[in-house]
Design a protein around this nucleic acid. Structure first.
Length: 484
RNA sequence: GGCGACGUGGGUGAGUGGUUUAAACCAGGGUCUGCAAAACCCUUUUUCCCGCAAGUUCGAAUCUUGCCGUCGCCGCCA
């Protein structure tokens, strides 16, 4: 039996995972800046980390999962210029910045719910933790790692040995040579980064601080909130790969300079969604929002599509690729439905290590594509067993159901529940529908018996046009709602 | 310019030194079916589907070097 290994961005190897406190995992993932609807890139990140949490919990850990909501704008332009992103959106929509933050927070949570992403245990907002951020900044000033300049507070990169260790950007001179960061008169060194910014006239989101009215820098919220809820050393910190530098390097610097302790034990970074090989991003305008995708595809199809590639691999988006996933997932659902409806027989199913292979895949740095491939191999074996005249015994069916419900449903979240798969079995509307379908199928059966195929095909076609699919099998005709 | 990735069959996408004769999904073909759907089987059997070229090794898609190509980060972005 394998044990869990996680690829750690800071060691650049797959390291065996054990939490600092036995049995309890502390995990922080960088959340979204809420100034627009979430797109497929967000989905890839949060679905991936959702599986991480689900797998850790499944294997017996208690996980405290914190994911922030960045509801302070930060800047659109250069390090010190440009407009706050949320404020800009507020201006465009002619509402208060906080309305923007709140509206898009709700939008984000709705989208994640539909994708089956479990809510974090704590979802702290940056604006709700201004005192904690001020406290952290004060601590850094006291220890000589930060300085004030014109009402702005900057972190002194030179004061912290090992800055840039995560991204590999440790040569500050080299960075500065090619960097677009312009030397500002109030920074000592160009790569110093802002902890607190003085509010310019007209800036709407601002708070009082020991250094006057202003607002926190982007990096400081994550360090402050992660340490508040998870302690000074946390087990897992996740985020998008594009945040390695500068965001995560800055987080490390702030936290470790303040506490003198290691901040994060395992860094996890997920890769990008691309469109025609180019990153999907807001600034490029080539993004597709989840709300638009959900109009065409079942959210579970999107989730399945994402998990068919590894979280550290880029995922190329295209209509044909998602449609391929849609077909594949729908066949898996057909198999599950067939299993639920199968009459008890006497045959057995050789599980042949399917469970072990699934566990091995997930323990190997959450290799969801391999886990899914094992589930499909299992599906094939299961169908072959059900095809045999002796069918599958009640015990065999129970084992098969347990396997699917554990790994496909509970851990990966790519299998609908029995109730969803078998429409007529529960629910008020469902029972009526089941009765009506029974009548229709009886009529069609009679038509087929007298070889009136025109009538039988008409019934089938009209139902299919309404999303109900018929299948003539040895045991009779079965029907299901065609979705995803 | 600096830092970091990647390049696998018609498409998506695993595998990262020897159970690999490269997983799984889609597409294509076949069996079954009144016709479908689903299911199952097949898609080249002897070196050649692992970007190209050298090298290390008994053995490489898998390690090293060079080259070509694509991408990410160095304002903001999952």
């Amino acid at each position: 039996m394998s044990s869990l290994h996680i690829y750690n961005s800071i060691t650049r190897t797959k390291d065996p995972f054990e939490p600092l406190i036995p049995g309890l995992v502390s995990m922080y993932v960088c959340g979204p800046t809420v100034y627009g609807h979430a797109h497929l890139g967000h989905a890839k990140s949060y679905v991936s980390f959702d599986v991480v949490v689900r797998w850790l919990r499944h294997t017996g850990f208690r996980v405290r999962y914190v994911q922030n909501i960045t509801d302070v704008g930060h800047l659109t332009d250069d390090a010190d210029d440009g407009e706050d992103k949320i404020q800009k959106q507020a201006r465009l929509e002619m509402v208060d910045p906080m309305e923007i933050a709140q509206a898009y927070t709700r939008s984000y949570l709705e989208d994640m719910d539909r994708l089956g992403v479990l809510r974090p245990n704590i979802a702290p907002t940056a604006t709700g933790h201004i005192p904690e951020q001020i406290a952290l900044i004060s601590r850094l000033i006291e220890k000589g790692h930060a300085y004030e300049s014109n009402g702005n507070i900057y972190f002194s990169v030179e004061s912290f040995a090992g800055y840039g260790r995560l991204s590999g950007r440790t040569d500050q001179a080299a960075i500065q040579a090619g960097a677009r960061v312009e030397l500002r008169s109030d920074k000592r060194v160009p790569s110093d980064f802002a902890l607190w910014k003085k509010a310019e006239p007209g800036h709407l989101m601002k708070w009082m601080s020991p250094w006057g009215e202003g607002y926190p820098g982007w990096h400081v919220e994550c360090s402050a909130m992660a340490m508040k809820y998870l302690g000074e050393t946390i087990d897992i910190h996740g985020g998008g790969m594009e945040n390695k530098f500068p965001h995560h390097d800055c987080e490390i610097a702030q936290a470790e300079a303040a506490t003198g302790k290691p901040f994060v034990r395992f860094w996890m970074h997920n890769n990008m969604v691309t469109v025609d090989g180019t990153k999907m991003g807001k600034s490029l305008g080539n993004f597709v929002t989840l709300k638009d995708l959900f109009k065409v595809f079942d959210p579970m199809v999107i989730r399945f599509f994402i998990l068919q590639s590894h979280y550290r691999s880029p995922l190329d988006f295209s209509d044909t690729a998602i449609r391929a996933s849609q077909t594949g997932l729908s066949k898996l659902h057909d198999t599950a439905r067939r299993l639920y409806e199968a009459p008890a027989g006497s045959g057995t199913l050789d599980m042949a290590g399917f469970e072990e292979k699934t566990i091995d895949a997930l323990n190997d740095d959450f290799n969801t594509p391999v886990a899914i491939s094992v589930i499909f191999e299992f599906s094939k074996a299961l169908n072959s067993a059900l095809d045999r005249p002796e069918g599958l015994s009640a015990d065999g069916a129970a084992t098969a159901i347990a396997y699917l419900e554990t790994y496909a449903a509970e851990v990966l979240g790519i299998l609908k529940s029995r109730e969803e798969l078998i429409v007529g079995e529960s629910g008020d509307g469902g029972e009526t529908l089941a009765d009506v379908m029974e009548v229709l199928l009886e009529l069609r059966k009679e038509a087929r018996a007298r070889k009136d195929f025109a009538t039988s095909d008409t019934i089938r076609d009209l139902l299919l046009a309404r999303g109900i699919e018929l299948k003539d099998t040895r045991e009779g005709t079965s029907w299901s709602k065609k979705r995803g």
